[in-house]
Structures are given as structure tokens and as C-alpha cells.
Design a protein around this nucleic acid. Sequence first.
RNA 1: GGUCCGGUAGCUCAGUUGGAUAGAGCAUCAGCCUUCUAAGCUGAGGGUCAUUGGUUCGAAUCCAAUCCGGAUCACCA
Length: 615
Amino acid sequence: MQVYAPLYILVTGSIRNTYFCSMSIVSQLQQCTIAGLKALYERPFTAADFQVNQTKPEFEGDYTVVMFSLMKSLKLAPEEIGSALGGYLIQEYPNYFSAFNIIKGFLNLTVTDTYWTSLLQEKHADTGYGKKAMSGKKVMVEYSSPNTNKPLHLGHLRNNFLGWSVAEILKANGYEVIKSCIVNDRGIHICKSMIAWQFFANGATPDSTSTKGDHFVGTYYVRFNDEYKKQVESLVVSGLTKEEAEKEAPLMKATQQMLLNWEAGKPDVIDLWKTMNSWVYQGFDITYKRIGSDFDIIYYESNTYLLGKDIVQQGLDKKVFYKKDDGSIWIDLTTEGLDEKIVQRRDGTSVYITQDIGLHLQKYEQYKFDQSIYVIGNEQNYHMKVLQLICQKLGLPNADNIFHLSYGMVELTTGKMKSREGTVVDADDLVDEMIQTSRQHTEELGKVKDFTATELDALYNTIGLGAMKFYLLRVDPKKTMVFNPEESIDFHGFTGPFVQYTHARIKSILRKEPVTAHTPLPVLSPLLKLEKELLVILEQYPGIIEQAGDEHNPSVVANYVFNVAKIFNSFYTEHPIVSAETEEKKHVRLKLATMTANVIRSGMQLLGIPVPERM
RNA sequence: GGUCCGGUAGCUCAGUUGGAUAGAGCAUCAGCCUUCUAAGCUGAGGGUCAUUGGUUCGAAUCCAAUCCGGAUCACCA
């Protein structure tokens, strides 16, 4: 919890006038209400006994105590409770509440201008506003997890942006965060692109074809599937069943042999594998750098795929697992409503889930984390449920604190993305297009003609990527979302560039009128509607960070930051800042603008989106 | 078939520890640039919150049933 000195709290001597200075105004109101109910009715209530909401715009007031449940337990009419409680709050907490009205079961309270202006005075220049002090807790966030046989696509982008943003949000909530990635660099699917390269490439390389390495390898993965399909078809024509043909196709047999050779460590296969993977990594590096992803630790499946075997033995000893007659090892999860799950094949090799059990333990031993978050698509909900259950049954450390941040698939307006049908949206192509679009818009508007070429490139990147990240992060992670190409390059309305633009607008004013040059508040003239509206939403920022952290949900921040920008823009249109009615108003508005810019910058940073000074 | 997730405006999404007349953006229509950046602002139209029943002062939100969509239930990863 943040702690800030309550300069704006005036101590009046009454014991009941103790203030809860580091709290949000909502918590404050809850505490005051509890105290009031106790004083008035000599009965103990908790915050769960009544509801506090933001007052609807059509009514007078800032926050509302919903009294229906109180009416029931006190057996009193709303007017009675409302006038007693409202009167009490105004009398006992004059620094917080200045007026009230009662409509049906709603007690609407007006928060004093003193409260808002003191908040503004104290927080307007605080770039760490809303962020919590380090708690000493450590959390691992695993995300991205690409395969080394094809380039990154739209689905990976959602994953990467989510992982990055959740890491930033957790940092803001006081966690130490370790970002990790598990690279799926081995297995039959990796061998497919290797075999296709051997058969069809004639020694071509990314350099010889001027192709980005991951795309280069990706074409051979596609080529494999095409050629394999042809082989299967011709075998079917020659009389085999489809199943037989799929097994007997020469390409598949070669691939399976290659996998065996890889596992046996045959030098020529290992060399080819290393070479092709290095091509892919060169490509990934470029993409990760462009989209602003990075990791503190990268695990490779080629190193981890043998993990977990000791654990399987321990599980047998503990009778968590059992062995079937053929030698394969299983766990029975039917009492949990799941199925039986294999953890070791009859040939003694470990399966996908076994590696994950091993990796969990390895990560724990390495980092001693308090929580381990996996950013993985919802198609793996079952897998992750089983993983956690097994870890718990084995009594592995911190198994209860495995959290699957399950996100929904990204679909296209035309339907689902399918790698094999070529309906995927490539990450690099998309980034290119977004940057190109931002260039076009910027040139049309012609506001930054004095920028150098380098500055312009940086700006196009900021806007293009900002639009894309915001577009993918503004939706609740767990929901399947639709990617609409036209909508994604729209820079108006609920978009990243809209928020960035609002920031640039403010900065333009502050360059002319630095806020530091002004005397401190207090302010005597009453706050106008839009001034207060801005302060009300700015006051909510710490709570938003907390909520986003608790829910592992960046869309909470995206929605918030958009609303802040929207309210600021209304305010900006309605009220002049530099040429305000009075000097006092000018000071207040400059500070409001400063605080708004800081919150926008801070919130966007939690989404991994920089904001420009000009655009 | 079992399990899980979802269904809110033409489209994309908010809103669900039960609260006032269900909100944004896009799209459509009507306005606003001698004035701090119009990537902006103001206003209008647009809803059987999938359906039905239940719980209660009050249901988009909770419960039950039904319909529709998706994911998953591999000795693949």
C-alpha cells in the first residue's frame, strides 16, 4: 500500500476526526460510514454491509452510499438513515464531505474541493503515483513460448503484449518480476522443416535468398506439409488407406528417423538443427526487439525435455503415479473429475506434461518465487489444470501458486487463423503495416514537419506499435477476440494513438507554461464540473493498478487510461488553461494537466506503450 | 458424450462481490478550427442484455433448464 503524507489533512482535535490518509476516497467513505453508523445506532457494521458507488452523473454528488441493506437491518426509512448519516459525515469529517442529498435508498455525498485540490497539490508531479513499494515478493511470468519452425504471428503478439504488460503491472504492485520464456526448439515438428530443407533447398540460406531467418525456415515447414500431402495422396491412389499412407509417406519416415538421430545426438543432424535454429533466432531477435519484448531467462526445450524423470520415480514411490503392465506410467485424476493422464511412455521417455513438472521445479529452485504465472492460450486450460494438480499431489513447492493466465484466441473477421491454410496474420507484416499507416496519417496531418528523419522514424514506431498493442490489450484477456484489420489501423476513438495524442497535447501546453513556476495551492474558487471530474478519475488510478494486478488484466488499465484521456479532452475543449479566467484557475489547470499527463504516461507504460512529446 | 469458457447496439467491446434511466468506440446523421495540437469536441438515432422460469424491495449480474458458438478430453507439443 502506498503511503503519502497527508499534507491536506487538518487535524481538528476530535478523536472521531482521525483520518485514513493513505486510502482511496472510497475506502475513506466506507470507514467514515462505519464510524457514523456505530455512533448513531451503536451497532457494528463492516464495509460489506453497504455499498459505495460513484454517483451517477445525473445526480448531485461524487460518491454514493447505497442504503437498501442498511434500511433492512436497521428497520428504518432511507430518509431517516440518510439524513442522520449524511449530517454526521458532514459534521464530523468536514474536510472530506461538504454536502449530501437523499434519493430513494441512495445517499449522495459531495466530496470537498479541499480534498481534491490537496490531492492535486500533492500528486500532480509524482511520477510514481499509484505504484506500490516493493513487497519483497517474487513472481515469474512465462510468456511468448515460440516454436522454432515458423515466424511469430498475431496470436503470439497477443501473448507477448499480455505477458509484458502483466509483468509491468505486477512490478507496479510491488513485486519483483522475472520474465521467462520456454522455446519449443525440438520435436517432430522441428524435424519437418529440417527435412524439407534437406530435400528441397539446394543449400539455400536466409542470406542467399535475402530472407529473414524465421520466415525462411517457416517456408520449409509449409513446404513439408505441401509435399507430404502430395505423397499421401499418391499413395492413396496406389491403393493404401489414408491412415497407412500417412504412416508410409517417405517424408514422414525420414522425419521420424531424423528425430531418432537427433535424440541419439548424431553430429550431422545436430549441426543442421543448430544452424536452422540459429536462423530462426536471428529472425526472432529482430521481431522481439521491434515489439519490445525481452526475457530475463530463456529456457530451451532441448534442455528441459528430459526433466521430470526423477520426479516420476518419486511419484511412483509416493503412489501418486502407477505403472501399467506395458511399463507406461500414469496418474488417475478421475476423482477430480478429470481423466487418466500418462506421465511417462512405455519406452521410458517423458511426455509434454512431465517436462513441465520438471521445469516448474527447476524454476523454483533457481528463483524461489512466490508465484508462477503462465501466459498460455485457453486451448491449454485442461493441460494447465492437470499440471497444477499433479504438482500439488506430488507436494512440490509452491504448487498452489501456479497461475494460468489463460487468454482467448485471436480470430479474423473471416474466421479462424490456420497455419496450414495460410490464413495467419504474420507478426512482422502486421508491424510493418501499422508503422506504414502511422507514417501516412502523420504526413497527412503535417504537424511535425520540423522533425529529423530519426525522430520521425521513432514517432512512426511509437504510434504504429502503440495502436497495435492497445488494440490487442484493450480486450479482456480471457475473451476470444476478433481482429478486424480496418479497425486495428484506426487511430481515432478507443485507440492507443488517441491516448498518445492527448498526452502530446498536454505536453505542448506545458512546454510553454512549466508548472513549476507557480505558487502552491490552496484554491478558493470552487472546482468546475469538468475539473472535478478529472480529479475524481485521477484519484482512482492507484485502485486501477491494484485491480489490474489482482486480475492479471491489462484491459483494466487500457479502459481507464482511455477514460482519463476522454475526460481531459472534454475539459480541454471547454476550459482554457494558459489563458484561464484567473491566475488561480490557471495554476489549478496546469497542475491538472501535469497530473493527467503523468497518469497517462504511467498507465500506458504499464501496457508497454510509450507516449510521445509531440505528434 | 464429459468438462470448461462465452452469447450485451449494425460491428468491436465495457459493465457481473445484485442498485438509480444498461455505457464507450467504430459506422450513420447534424454541428464546432481567427482562440493552449480537429489523431479533438458537442449532439442525435440505434438495445427483448440468447430464451424461459426462479430467488427479492431491486437481476445484464445470482440459481435452474433450454438454444447457439468455441476450446478440450493423444504414449503430439
